[in-house]
Design a protein around this nucleic acid. Structure first.
Length: 899
RNA sequence: GGGAGGUUAGCUCAGAGGUAGAGCGCCUGCUUUACACGCAGGAUGUCGGGGGUUCGAUCCCCUCACCUCCCACCA
């Protein structure tokens, strides 16, 4: 799959293959990914380990649609969860991450319906039972693909606890929850105007309606009013609903419409008498003509007016989106066709006063994209406010916290204005409402699958179950405890509930997160989790993903191309705190490159360790400055990574690990250690091998939550133990390793080496051109001088120096001050090019000017009395130091002769 | 109408009250004891506009502009 790297030249001294045979030269993740996953799983690593009272860490997966496929958003969220799971597992928590899928009522039913339609089969002809059987069949065939995809990603889910929202136990939980709420008077049935999707043929909740600004028309229509010559002009964007008008409304105190009081209007086309009602709530005196048509069956506000004024309601648009018999001559017409004809008729009759272009927020169905119709029908509702109040308190009091915290505000504003939840759906796929009605109309709500034998009220043996099913989210809200067997008091419920962290996209904060908090508190008395990590939605290169844009990244394709580790690392790295997560292909390649880098670091290290003496314990070893430096850096990295992970800053954590491994361990320590390995000091080499081994070991462990496969693969070669990295203690900062002296010294060394390399580039000299270097004992910072003397061999090696002297720079050498050290460098004229020297001089001039500028600024600052008085002494001291160094640098530049 | 977030290097994004970072891209050079998916060096930013607080603001406050999203209303 992967191409062999191109060999760009001959390598006369190819390292002996025997030393490297433990790791193949080419990094090919497809060679080992599936193997490690299978091993972890078979050894039970994904199941909670340890005693059942020890600290535990529990998450439940946001259950994807059972028939869904992995998309980049899933990949992102699950990667984040897996990083947490693996990190906590390595911190020796008893980790449980529960997998599962959701039956996803409308979505699944629609897919199956569409498939049947392709075969010319109508769901209604098929019948309910047969249709549901078809859905199960389809679920068996195509279901669970996504679970395999999660395995590919490396998700350490406990498959022994796999759940599905329609499992018998979870269905029981749903019925039980329904019964509990019903008995407490928190579920009621009633006729209200709800959002109706004609395409799906069901009611949907407010949240499932997506408003889209759409260009439409505002029609102004004149209704005749006997005794009022000008009539009443009303406005509407949906003229077809006028057939269901049962009143017109005016504001009681509007002088413009006062003449209409007590009169009757005549509904055009239909001829029905419409009372004029006065309603200050509905009618806005400032808006339009001040007269509103009232259609109680097809508008929620009008329905309320109808209740207030005891108006009748006439349903003129049916559940299929076609006009009903009550629409008279328009019966059977599609609602939009009816609109056209009615407008034409009104125009013909001279009643259409105006038709103005108008932008309306058209409510559309989240699932089918159809225009949602307000529709009067009998539905089940949850009285939500009594549930919301404790849930608000839980967040306010910190029982549940949001990360990032700013989401709490959004949560409060929704919860505080929450409206009753329509939970019945006119679908066949889902949890059937456990309500039974007898022939005498007695309603019985029972925690049973089958209807009871007889009505307990009247003894009638004929009971019919409510045909509706429940909103999918009604079952999802129980997920954090239904997966553990609630309402049974199971061992798992006791051991693992409440859970710790919930990770999900902010887009389902209201749909799911808020409802889980309400349900958890209501049914278990406990908030279902203590932390909600809400993440952003994935975008590709700043744009929303869409097939038309052609910027969709298929996670599986990306895994094929770059490897699961690289995909995970990219996603973690992209984890911003903001509302969007930006993923780019370039980053995928970058992550893959990093994985390769780790691979090669391991190859090098393993080759060095091969069959040689390697100290496991570094205590008591005589460490070199370089050893001390890298251990200090390693310790710092460990501390930072743990901190970032605890703050859900996966991006910072990933970047920190990469920075350490690549730019400190590889770029510097590895290079510093090469001459030690080749050198005569066997003891120093042995120590360095121990340090290198430790660095690799801890780097692999640090990286494991991000790149589990690659790290486990290398781990086996490094330790001889297969598949154990996953449970190895996560590296922590080692206080004893912190070494400011070594850090300062190596910082100086790195700065000097960089300066020497830079000189060669400036002069267009070859990287091997001999450079003589002087380090001035009279440098501005003398603290690192002794260390630099000790580091002289390293300096010579890394800087490829022809000569190194600790003495005042020779006259005519190129001077500079770096990291407080005054240096002089001499590069033979013959090595560079004259042009380069000239451009180098030009650049020096620029540098000099910039230096002058900054020196002037800093001296002004240091002479500013207010600054000296008010700024913290440490800051002032830092400024003085910087000024001194810049002055030294300026002086050095001034003294630089052409060399 | 209410609310949230954003505006930083060519691109995608981090960042902190003391004059800016990463990855990718770009330029130059290079096979130097693992790695060209590499090594070395380099360039690039009036940190959206204006005002204020401060010894000091890109970071805090106000305001304007533009962008994204959420909620409500919509005769």
């Amino acid at each position: 799959m992967r191409e062999e790297p191109v060999d760009h030249g001959r390598r006369p001294e190819e390292p002996s293959e025997s030393a490297l045979e433990s790791l193949p030269k080419t990094f090919d993740p497809s060679r080992f990914e599936s193997r490690w996953y299978a091993l972890w799983e078979s050894e039970g690593r994904f199941q909670p380990q340890g005693e059942s009272g020890s600290p535990r860490y529990v998450m439940v997966i946001p259950p994807p649609n059972v028939t869904g496929r992995l998309h980049i958003g899933h990949a992102y969220g699950r990667t984040v969860e897996d990083i947490l799971a693996r990190w906590k597992r390595m911190l020796q928590f008893r980790v449980l991450w529960v997998p599962g899928t959701d039956h996803a009522g409308i979505a699944t039913q629609m897919v199956v319906e569409r498939n049947l339609a392709k075969q010319g089969i109508d769901r209604k002809v098929l019948g309910r039972e047969a249709f549901v059987e078809r859905v199960w069949e389809w679920r068996r065939e195509s279901g669970d693909v996504i679970l395999g995809q999660l395995r590919r990603l490396g998700c350490s889910l406990d498959w022994s606890r796999l759940r599905f929202t329609l499992d018998p136990a979870l269905s029981r939980a749903v019925r039980h929850a329904f019964v509990l709420l019903y008995r407490d008077g928190l579920i009621y049935k009633g006729r209200y105007v709800v959002n109706w999707c004609p395409g799906c043929g069901t009611a949907v909740s407010d949240l499932e309606v997506v408003e889209k600004p759409t260009k439409g028309t505002l029609y102004k229509i004149r209704y005749d009013v006997p005794g009022v010559p000008e009539g009443a002009v009303v406005a509407t964007t949906r003229p077809e609903t006028m057939l269901g008008d049962t009143a017109i409304a005016i504001h009681p105190e509007d002088p413009r419409t006062g003449g209409l009081k007590g009169r009757k209007a005549i509904l055009p086309i239909v001829g029905r008498d419409l009372p004029v009602v006065e309603d200050a709530i509905l009618v806005d005196r400032e808006f339009g003509t001040g007269i509103v048509k009232v259609t109680p069956a097809h508008d929620a506000n009008d329905f309320a007016v109808g209740q207030r004024h005891a108006l009748s309601a006439v349903v003129v648009i049916g559940p299929d989106g076609k006009m009903t018999a009550a629409a008279g001559e328009y019966a059977g017409l599609d609602r939009f066709e009816a609109r056209k004809r009615i407008v034409a008729r009104l125009e013909q009759e001279g009643r259409l006063v105006a038709a103005e272009p108008y932008t309306i927020n058209l409510g559309t169905c989240q699932r089918s994209d159809d225009v949602v119709e307000p529709y009067l029908s009998e539905q089940w509702f949850v009285k939500i406010q009594p549930l919301a109040e404790p849930a608000i308190r839980a967040v306010r009091e910190g029982t549940v916290r949001f990360a990032p915290e700013s989401w709490a505000k959004t949560y409060f504003s929704w919860m505080e204005n929450i409206r009753d939840w329509c939970i019945s759906r006119q679908l066949w796929w889902g949890h059937r409402i456990p309500a039974f009605t007898c022939v005498n109309g007695h309603v019985l709500v029972e925690d049973e699958d089958e209807p009871p034998a007889a009505c307990p009220t009247c003894g009638s043996p004929e009971l019919v179950q409510d045909p509706d099913v429940l909103d999918t989210w009604f079952s999802s809200q129980l997920w954090p405890f239904s997966v553990f067997g609630w309402p049974e008091a199971t061992r798992d419920l006791k051991d693992f509930y409440p859970t710790d962290v919930l990770v999900t996209g902010y887009d389902i904060l209201f749909f799911w997160v808020a409802r889980m908090i309400m349900a958890g508190l209501r049914f278990t008395g406990k908030a279902p989790f203590s932390t909600v990590h809400l993440h952003g939605l994935v975008r590709i290169g700043g744009e929303k993903m869409s097939k038309t844009r052609g910027n969709v990244i298929d996670p599986l394709e990306a895994i094929e191309e770059f490897g699961a580790d690289a995909v995970r690392f990219t996603l973690a790295w992209a984890a911003a705190s903001g509302p969007t997560v930006s993923v780019e292909r370039g980053r995928m390649a970058g992550s893959r490159n990093f994985a390769t880098k780790v691979w090669n670091t391991a190859r090098f290290t393993l080759a060095q360790l091969d069959g040689r003496e390697v100290p496991e314990d570094l205590d008591g070893r005589s460490l070199s400055l370089a050893d001390r430096w890298i251990l200090s850096r390693l310790s710092m990295a460990c501390g930072d990574v743990n901190r970032h992970l605890s703050e859900f800053r996966f991006d910072e954590a990933a970047e920190r690990i990469q920075g350490f491994v690549w730019h400190e361990l590889c770029d510097w320590y590895l290079e510093m250690v090469k001459p030690v390995f080749a050198g005569p000091d066997a003891s120093a080499a042995e120590t360095a091998r121990g340090v290198l081994r430790r660095c690799l070991r801890d780097s692999l462990a640090l990286l494991h939550p991000f790149m589990p496969f690659l790290t486990e693969e290398i781990w086996e070669k490094l330790t001889g133990r297969a598949g154990t990295l996953i449970v190895t203690p996560y590296p922590q900062a080692v206080a004893a390793w912190r070494d400011d002296e070594a850090e300062a010294s190596l910082e100086a060394l790195r700065a000097i080496v960089t300066r020497v390399r830079n000189l060669r580039t400036e002069r267009a000299a070859s990287p091997t051109a001999p450079v003589a270097l002087w380090i001035d004992p009279a440098s501005p910072s003398k603290e690192t001088l002794p260390a630099l003397e000790a580091l002289a061999p390293l300096l010579t090696h890394l800087g490829r120096l022809s000569e190194l002297r600790f003495a005042a720079p020779a006259a005519g050498s190129t001077r500079d001050v770096v990291a407080g050290i005054r240096v002089g460098m001499e590069l033979p004229r013959s090595e560079g090019s004259a042009a380069a020297v000239a451009s180098g001089d030009a650049r020096d001039e620029k540098t000099r000017l910039a230096l002058d500028d900054e020196i002037a600024q800093l001296s002004a600052k240091v002479q500013n009395a207010a600054y000296l008085e008010k700024a913290p002494p440490a800051v002032v001291e830092k400024t003085r130091l910087r000024l001194r160094e810049l002055e030294a640098k300026r002086a050095a530049l001034g003294m630089s002769g052409p060399s």
